[in-house]
């Protein structure tokens, strides 16, 4: 190892030891800083505990000589906590810049304590330690921001999933008959959700027939047709027969033009026709009875 590398490492170790030794004092000071005070409002002890966890993380990263490494194992353990803190600040209207500033504000109190540790606060060793600690708190800031941003991505991903599910309701039409009215474009992600919801509904309703109504699907290209056929095949493996309904004349023409073979799939022009087909297949006869309220006797 180079001389400089060795020196840097021993500095990092010194910083790590300092953080451990002064954990309580640092935590007490941080607990009053905006970042912790505004998040942990229930009790100050709670804030102090959270601060201690962060001090531990910094100490561990320093001990490993990884003051610049946001993937250092120490940070991983406080990632969830930091993410929750950042999310909580964001909910109360703090901008990302403000949150970053609040994390930066944590540096000063610790630096002050660190300087106090050295007989000569202006000496080389003290300066090196201050530099290492500054880099470490800089890394902490990146970790917080990265965690906050990825929390944002998670929210978006969750909303996207929920939207997909909301957009594909499975309806029970009759005992043993379920239907999915498809509306909008049927891409791969969407067709996965459709397939899963439909198969789960087949189990839940003990369905023998499943109707895929594509009245609301604007175009059927070969990819959409392939998705439909996969869904039909998966339903069959679960013991249910699929009927594809709502094939408008224009779509029927496109299918023929593209040379897509839906020959093995049962198709009907309307949802009503598909339901009639399914009922007949199940041996259910729908007949018009006497008007309600008229006695038979």
């Amino acid at each position: 190892m180079s001389e400089q590398g060795a020196a840097e490492e021993s500095t990092a170790v010194l910083v790590s030891e300092f953080l451990q030794r002064r954990q309580e004092q640092i935590a007490q000071r941080w607990a009053d800083a905006d970042l912790f005070r505004t998040v942990f409002t229930v009790s100050r002890d709670e804030a102090v505990e959270a601060c201690k966890a962060v001090v531990d993380a910094l100490s561990e990263a320093a001990a490993a000589g990884r003051v610049d490494d946001i993937t250092a194992p120490g940070f991983r353990r406080v990632r969830d906590q930091l993410g929750r803190m950042a999310a909580s600040r964001a909910r109360t209207g703090a901008s990302p810049g403000q949150i970053a500033g609040e994390v930066a504000d944590l540096r000063q109190p610790v630096i002050a304590l660190l300087r106090g540790e050295f007989p000569d606060p202006a000496g080389d060793q003290a300066q090196e330690c201050v530099l290492a600690l500054t880099r470490l708190t800089g890394t902490l800031r990146v970790v917080v921001m990265e965690t906050a941003l990825s929390a944002g991505e998670e929210v978006i991903a969750r909303q996207r999933e929920q939207l997909l599910e909301v957009a594909t309701p499975v309806i029970k039409l009759w005992d043993g008959i379920v239907a999915v009215p498809l509306i909008g474009t049927l891409d791969s992600a969407r067709s996965q959700v459709v397939m899963e919801s439909l198969l789960n509904a087949i189990v839940a309703e003990r369905a023998r027939h499943a109707i895929l109504d594509i009245t609301g699907v604007p175009t059927v290209d070969s990819l959409v047709a392939q998705h439909l056929m996969k869904t039909v095949a998966a339903a069959r493996l679960m013991g249910a027969e699929c009927v594809v309904s709502g094939i408008r004349p224009a779509i029927a023409q496109t299918i023929v033009h593209l040379g897509i073979d839906l020959g093995t799939v049962v198709t009907r022009s309307s949802l009503a026709d598909a339901l009639a087909y399914a009922l007949r297949r199940q041996g259910i006869v729908v007949a018009s009875g006497p008007p309600v309220g008229v006695s038979l006797s």
Binding site: Q192, E196, L199, I202, K230, A233, A234
Partner: peptide, 16 residues
Amino acid sequence: MRPAVAITLVELGLTL
């Protein structure tokens, strides 16, 4: 057959 198994089989290319 479970739904997850059916989906996987179809994706695998096995419709049995």
